[in-house]
């Protein structure tokens, strides 16, 4: 990293008050540069994280000042026995299972095709990426209308090809797949861009060389593209899993967790408990448990990346 640590001669030498050699007197400017970030970080990330942890041991209420009475591990014990907490965790996981594979595979296929085609890339980028940049509220308005029984475009489309349509958002069994379809449509563009960037890093000569050696398109994809994109795929998969675990918007906006709570995610459960039922302490405890889950997933990612780095 930085090796240029020569003090400019025009500047007066720093007072020799700090005799320790490893800190060559840049501590003060460094502190000044770090300060604005540090203040916000401590005030709005680290501070709340500690406060949230404390709160999770109390019966804090939204509508009462202070922390309320001490609950010990009561909130955690309750959460672990709370079927609604477990089902919200399962819904979140189910959503992740439904969305992650298609979001990776489709994004990969589309990016691969776009990369091979070469022409009209701006158009594909527009088509696949434009939804991603729109707010979830806009997505929700559009897709609620798409899924509307009788009037919606999806039912009309299925009817014209002679298929009948399930009650997309009304049936507890179909509500989550419906949200998954919407999410795939909405966020595929992000992975598409990541894969496209990854594809551009692959040297063209590899393809040319293999073509000269007589490799067909499928062989090129199998032998060059997929292995070369291994790291991108890991990255996409992990970002995807973490993003899916944090799902809130789609459920809140499209089904409000229903029907019959069949689509309530963990974050919505936090929201419901904390801000609808006023149980801030309990909500904080659920947040902490959820944090552990995210942390575990991140840890798995780190170990995979480390192994990949050793292999390459």
């Amino acid at each position: 990293m930085s090796t240029e640590t020569v003090t400019p001669p025009a500047r007066p030498a720093p007072p020799p008050s700090t005799p320790t050699p490893p800190a060559p007197g840049q501590g003060r400017p460094a502190a000044a540069f770090l300060l604005p970030f540090a203040i916000l970080y401590l005030a709005f990330i680290a501070g709340p994280a500690v406060y949230g942890l404390i709160m999770s041991f109390f019966d804090a209420s939204l509508v009462r000042p202070g922390l309320g009475s001490f609950a010990g591990f009561g909130n955690y014990a309750e959460a672990l026995q709370d079927p609604d907490f477990w089902s919200s965790l399962w819904h979140t996981l189910w959503f992740t299972i439904l969305t992650t594979p298609p979001l990776i595979v489709l994004a990969f296929v589309f990016a691969l095709l776009a990369d091979r085609v070469g022409r009209g890339r701006w158009f594909f980028r527009l088509a696949f990426f434009a939804p991603f940049i729109l707010p979830s509220a806009v997505i929700a308005l559009i897709w609620i209308f798409m899924y509307t029984p009788e009037l919606g475009l999806i039912e009309a489309g299925l009817n014209t090809v002679g298929l009948s349509s399930p009650a997309w958002l009304g049936d507890p069994a179909w509500a989550m797949p419906s949200l998954a379809i919407t999410t795939i449509w909405w966020t595929l563009g992000f992975n598409f861009i990541l894969y496209l960037a990854g594809l551009q890093e692959i040297p063209r000569e590899l393809y040319e060389a293999s073509a000269i050696d007589g490799a067909g398109p499928w062989q090129q994809i199998r032998r060059i593209t997929i292995p070369m994109l291994g790291r991108t795929t890991t990255l996409v998969a992990v970002l995807q899993v973490i993003a899916s675990l944090k799902v809130f918007d789609q459920m809140y906006l499209i089904t409000n967790g229903g029907p019959d709570f069949a689509t309530r995610s963990v974050l919505q459960y936090v929201y419901d408990q904390g801000f609808t039922n006023f149980r801030l302490g309990y909500a904080a405890a659920i947040s902490m448990l959820f944090f552990l889950v995210v942390l575990a997933v991140s840890a798995v990612w780190f170990s995979i990346v480390r192994r990949q780095e050793k292999e390459v």
Partner: peptide, 16 residues
């Protein structure tokens, strides 16, 4: 506002 729990949540938050 949208009816049901979201309405009462919003009303409580606004008052708090």
């Amino acid at each position: 506002l949208a009816w049901g729990n979201p309405y009462y949540t919003k009303l409580s938050l606004a008052t708090v």
